[in-house]
């Protein structure tokens, strides 16, 4: 059942896909890479980098917000992915999901271990909504899939909640407290936002 979680009914409509299909969706290339990593093929790590570095670096950078630290975390994450590969279980989720989560966890650990963490994080709080209302920063690759669709699909309040949950490592209760919203509202908004996003797929 889990062998091919919807292998064929995923395709993107209305999203400009330049050359290769999005790496966040299943593909034969991903399966081949998993096989090579499982077989402990060291050269596969180069392919891994070329395939995932931009996406992973984007996630890490959004969390740690500093280039040198983002590079450290990516490096650390790749070493960890290699050594922990035996614990990757394809029946529980896609390779991309697994590696993004490793990167998120390491990034969040990184910012939590910072001395000035409390200060730097609360600094962002006052401006977070304003920041969300602004257009995407120029560092984002405008030619890349989806960002435009995402800004069109989600209202700023929904993006803000997903950003806090996904990129800042907040729990839903923390988001509720931070935005001064009832927990139920946070739950429904998060769920609605994810539902809207999944409509971009298929």
């Amino acid at each position: 059942m889990a062998a091919s979680p919807g292998c064929c009914h995923f395709h993107l409509s209305g999203i400009p896909v330049s050359d290769s299909p999005p790496i966040s969706l299943p593909s034969a290339a991903e399966e081949a890479l998993v096989e090579r990593l499982r077989a402990r093929d060291e050269a596969a790590m180069t392919e891994f980098y070329d395939r995932y570095a931009a996406a992973l670096y984007g996630v890490i950078f959004r969390i740690v917000k500093a280039e040198d630290e983002a590079e450290d975390v990516l490096q650390e994450a790749m070493v960890k992915i290699w050594h922990a590969f035996a614990s990757y279980d394809a029946s529980k989720g896609r390779l991309f999901t697994w590696v993004v989560n490793i990167c998120r966890n390491l990034s969040i650990d990184k910012i939590r271990s910072r001395q000035h963490r409390v200060g730097s994080r609360t600094m962002g709080l006052d401006d977070s909504l304003t920041a969300q209302r602004q257009a995407a920063p120029a560092t984002f690759r405008p030619e890349h899939i989806g960002l435009q669709e995402i800004t069109q699909t989600l209202i700023p309040e929904q993006r803000q909640i997903i950003d806090l949950l996904y990129f800042e490592g907040y729990t839903q209760s923390e988001v509720a407290e931070e935005l001064d919203l009832p927990l139920g509202t946070v739950k429904t908004r998060a769920r609605t936002a994810i539902k809207l996003l999944s409509k971009l797929i298929r």
Binding site: A53, Y57, G58, R62, M78, R141, G146
Partner: peptide, 29 residues
């Protein structure tokens, strides 16, 4: 689907890493 939606969200925020990072990271890894 939920995981794919979040994956898409992550991927949409991809950033091309700075020049020279590929060699440094792969070298270390």
């Amino acid at each position: 689907q939920v995981q794919a939606a979040l994956g898409l969200y992550a991927e949409a925020h991809a950033i091309t890493p700075p020049a020279g990072m590929r060699e440094r990271v792969l070298g270390h890894v």
